[in-house]
Amino acid sequence: MWYAQHPGRRVRQLLGDGAVLLWTALWAVAAVVAHRLITLAALPTPPHTRTRIPLLGPRMNGTLHDVARAGDRLADAAPAGQAPFQALALLAAIALFTVPVGLLLALWLPRRLRWTRQAAAARELAATEDGRELLALRALVRPLDELARFSDAGPGRLAEGWREADPAVLDALADVELRRLGIAAH
């Protein structure tokens, strides 16, 4: 299960996943553009005309050309062979992609995988009587305001019903935990 069944949570998950994909694609494009600009700067006779890079504003375009001019200075200082300069261009492009994308993935991926594991475990637990009791206990240890938001009964009544193993209260609490995770209660 990759996405919640609750529409609100599913939309947030889809928007988050889409944002991660867009972020990754933008940095991939930036890395390719940087690689091409550095490679262009390594040419023995760089063109004298200033080409406009599509989809970038004039300010970013100027900044990237400044980077290319810095590459020109490196190329002038480089030996006649272009292999070291090509390796530098490749390393710069890889670093430009991996640093921002890696930082985002380090923050986003563990949370996304944790929800997936929790949702799968909750669905499995919901299928058994003992599992529903465990889900009910898990719901009870949530903050009281969160518990009150999902249930009509007061927290004291819910705790008492859980202690007495009232099947209706156990089911209600288990459903609260399932809804918190965005899973449809059975």
Rank of each mutant, 00 (worst) to 15 (best):
G154K: 00
A75M: 03
P100H: 05
I94N: 00
A119I: 00
E124K: 14
R114P: 00
D130P: 08
V67M: 15
A93F: 02
R123N: 07
L88C: 07
F97R: 01
L74M: 12
E164K: 12
L107I: 06
L134W: 13
E177G: 09
L91A: 12
D145R: 14
R157Y: 00
A121H: 10
L96G: 08
A139G: 02
R123C: 09
E160R: 14
L74G: 05
A126R: 02
A153M: 09
T98M: 07
A165C: 07
D152Y: 00
A106K: 14
V169H: 06
T128G: 12
W108N: 01
R111T: 09
L88W: 15
A121S: 10
P100M: 04
D152H: 08
R59H: 06
A80T: 05
R73S: 11
R114Q: 15
R112W: 13
V99C: 08
T98Q: 04
A159E: 13
E164Q: 13
A139I: 02
A127M: 02
W108Q: 03
A95V: 11
A120C: 03
T128P: 05
P58V: 01
L135M: 11
W115G: 01
A75G: 14
W108L: 00
L88V: 14
P143E: 14
D152S: 10
A75Y: 04
L91S: 03
A70E: 03
E160A: 14
T116R: 12
E124Q: 15
G156D: 13
L103Y: 12
A83M: 15
W162T: 02
A92D: 01
A120F: 01
G102V: 06
G131W: 04
V169P: 06
A121R: 15
L144W: 06
A153Q: 12
V176T: 09
L125K: 15
L91Y: 01
P84D: 11
A159F: 05
E124H: 14
A95N: 02
A126P: 04
L105W: 08
A93W: 00
S151E: 15
D66C: 04
R59D: 06
L140I: 00
A77D: 11
D152A: 13
A127N: 00
L173M: 07
A119W: 01
P167D: 05
A87K: 11
V176A: 09
A68Q: 15
A165M: 07
L125Q: 15
G154D: 12
A75E: 04
D152E: 11
H65T: 05
L147P: 06
L147H: 06
V169E: 07
D66R: 08
A119P: 00
